[in-house]
Amino acid sequence: MGAHNEVSRAVLEVSNLTVHYGKVEALSNASIKVGEGQIVTVIGPNGAGKTTMLSAVMGMLASKGQVGFDGQIEGVPEVERMVARGMNLVPEKRELFGEMSVEDNLVLGAFQRYRMGKRDHGDTMEEVYALFPRLKERRAQLAGTLSGGERQMLAVGRALMAKPKLLMLDEPSLGLAPLIVREIFRIISELRRRGVSILLVEQNARAALQVADYAYVLETGAIAMEGPAHMLADDPRVIEAYLGLGGKHQDMLAG
């Protein structure tokens, strides 16, 4: 396609990121860019390496390549450092603290800020509660007792407690009923309006392409396509990648 994500200021600039699991290359030479205030999505069928990419950017996995974040290049990203610098990941599995209350989960979201001497988590929590009134209702409840949608809200809310410059969301719609998926995507748009840059990894390509500004398609560990989201939304090859349709039925999808 030859397209590039032209941005005035990049929050995240990943170049030639490669990850190995033992001898298996799970991600090869992936390069992506997220501009300030942008929503960028990485879509692709399952097993394409989307989660691997986020984990490597975050420093949860060893990788080769360069991760430039907020104007500074990290050879080997280290999770705690990335969090301190304003990068936050909402993982696919949510990774909540199930036996702790909703409020404690949120407080821990601000742990790194607290450590750096910024004791403003009370105010941030009010902002999160404003965004997710449901969490306020349930604040004394244990996280493990929440419903699927509430858990996802808590996971996002907990990440917001760190006041991230870049929020990375891994499959936020996974396993959620359509109504809740819509709610989650509404919030993603809302976050962008508040100036948070977002990197969104999704299997739910349609929803992701609808909210995103720019999109990358990942297939078997490599970037296969990229372009402005609205253009990819109409690209038959995206559907092909997902369903193995050979482009036959895109007329039906368009309808």
Binding site: M60, V79, E80, V83, P91, E95, F97, M100, F111, R158
Partner: peptide, 26 residues
């Protein structure tokens, strides 16, 4: 205390704790 909670969080979910910037070494 937030440090006490951080330890509990690590015990409950190590990966989750790391993502909050609570390092296993700390």
């Amino acid at each position: 205390t937030i440090y006490g909670k951080a330890l509990r969080a690590t015990a409950i979910n190590r990966n989750g704790a790391r993502l909050m910037g609570i390092s296993p070494a700390l």
